[in-house]
Design a protein around this nucleic acid. Structure first.
Length: 434
RNA sequence: GGGGGUGUACCAGAGUGGCCAAAUGGGGCAGACUGUAAAUCUGCUGGUGUAUGCCUACGGUGGUUCGAAUCCAUCCGCCCCCA
């Protein structure tokens, strides 16, 4: 009656590759598996969310998930498919990031459900006591440089340059797997398809150190496809960069908007990866979407599910309200009818700039207001602002600005302290400090 | 250590003394069309509001010249080949 892990991944399109024997192992018994997350930032982003879902499904299928935080590997930097060497993060930042990521991972997995309770480990805990010589003898001796160089993930870098440090990364990750295999009986490492090379380095170390007498691997690998966008650009980025799970880095409003704006073509895939909805539910959404594409039923369903899951139901409700006002049929009158404190809550996540009353009073025209007076946060320069206005791109409180020289006396503040600027269809709020 | 190459705007990449704020492509931002989608078409994409102006910019510094992204010196970074 429990769900079959690989079956589940297959119909969701989340299975990219796995080692021979993986399926058999998973069907045979409750298996421990892990995924690693390096603390390169203080928050995870939606690119990580796909692999987190892998762990979640893993646990739902009755297996035991380990979330590994790369406190040690994060100090080195994974070169996989990266075009250039990266700069180190300082240790303070790493420890700070590590803590943020740990907290986020905690909310996705169940750490108290009996035998298959999730566990969290940090590879810094075992690497901090291993000396260089010991590591060379324990891990390095088992793999040839030739083997390590043959990985696709480092091929490009072998042409353009890679430091010994980054080149060693796969050895560290491989050793992690070995360590968990030895101490926690972890048999499977999962990850995005870009991690295949690093993961198989791990299975190789285990095989060579532990022997392979029965002719099948004792440690397994499974990867999920990296998400792509139908137009070929990178998934998970917006104008502002990454879409983070942390509400202070990407507000629930921006988070919701991100999903709402994904193209029709990509949604069936995203629903399967990110939603908990089952096959029938997803297919039903697809057919209702096909009947009335302009309603964007799939986008709304996914945006709703993820916003309430990652943030909260209340956050979602507020975001929905903000969206209705900003993109709906709202007029100047609607905006004026919203009370000040409600305005504050509802538009909380909408990008905004605070200026002083003095700055507002001193400002003579709209061009200055949306450029220098708002610290170039809306438009980078006066020239850019002027151009945009000439191109009919700017409105204030839902009314188009017609001239770059328009004086501010033409616009009235909402609730005596807000001004809603729209550059194109995107919104920005100006708030007076009181 | 020897030899060669290369460094140009967000990225790729042209430009090899004035016509260069720098071709072209991508990206980005808008407009039209729409559904806050995709595709397509159009405009913009160094600053300063209009000045054949001025300032800042072709890895750093210094020089040659009336004039330098372009020539010279030197330093720095990166890549390739030989040892």
């Amino acid at each position: 009656m429990t769900i079959d892990f690989t079956e589940e991944l297959r119909w969701r399109g989340m299975l990219h590759d796995m080692m021979p024997g993986t399926d058999e192992q998973l069907r045979k018994e409750m298996t421990s598996g892990y995924i690693g997350f390096d603390p390169t930032a203080s928050s995870l982003h939606i690119g990580n969310l796909a692999t987190i879902m892998l762990l979640v499904h893993f646990q739902r299928a009755g297996h035991k998930p380990y979330a590994l935080i790369g406190g040690a590997t994060g100090m080195i930097g994974d070169p996989s498919f990266k075009a250039a060497e990266r700069t180190f993060l300082d240790e303070e930042t790493l420890r700070f990031n590590q803590e943020g990521i740990r907290k986020q991972l905690e909310q996705f997995l169940d750490f108290d459900c009996g035998a298959n309770s999730a566990e969290m480990v940090n590879n810094y805990d075992w690497f901090k006591d291993i000396g260089f010589l010991q590591f060379l003898r324990d891990a390095g001796k088992f793999l040839s440089v030739n083997y390590m160089m043959s990985k696709d993930s480092v091929k490009k870098r072998l042409e353009t340059g890679i430091s010994f440090t980054e080149f060693s990364y796969q050895l560290l990750q491989g050793y992690d797997f070995y360590h968990l295999y030895k101490n926690k009986n972890v048999r499977l490492q999962m990850g995005g398809s870009d991690q295949w090379g690093n993961i198989t380095t791990g299975t190789e170390i285990i095989r060579r150190k532990e022997g392979d007498e029965e002719g099948y691997f004792k440690a397994y690998a499974l990867t999920t496809p990296l998400l792509t966008k139908s137009d070929g650009s990178k998934f998970g980025k917006s104008e502002g960069g990454n879409i983070w799970l942390d509400a202070t880095k990407t507000s629930p409003y921006e988070f919701y908007q991100f999903w709402l704006n994904q193209s029709d073509e990509d949604l069936p895939r995203y629903l399967r990866v990110f939603s908990f909805k089952n096959k029938q539910e997803i297919e039903a959404l697809e057919s209702s979407h096909a009947e009335a594409p302009h309603l964007r039923i799939m986008q709304k369903a996914l945006a709703e599910e993820l916003t309430s899951r990652i943030h909260s139901e209340r956050a979602f409700q507020l975001v929905l309200k903000a969206t209705e006002v900003l993109f709906g049929k709202a007029t100047l009158e609607t905006l004026q009818s919203i009370a000040a404190d409600e305005f504050e809550t509802v538009f909380n996540g909408v990008p905004q700039t605070e200026i002083t009353l003095q700055e507002w009073n001193d400002c003579t025209n709209i061009t200055d207001l949306v450029s220098t007076v708002t610290y170039s946060e809306i438009y980078a320069s006066k020239g850019e602002a002027r151009r945009a206005i000439q191109q009919n791109a700017v409105s204030v409180n839902k009314v188009k600005v017609t001239s770059a020289e328009q004086p501010l006396t033409d616009f009235s503040l909402l609730q005596e302290r807000f001004l809603l600027i729209s550059k194109g269809k995107k919104n920005h709020l100006i708030k007076l400090k009181m």
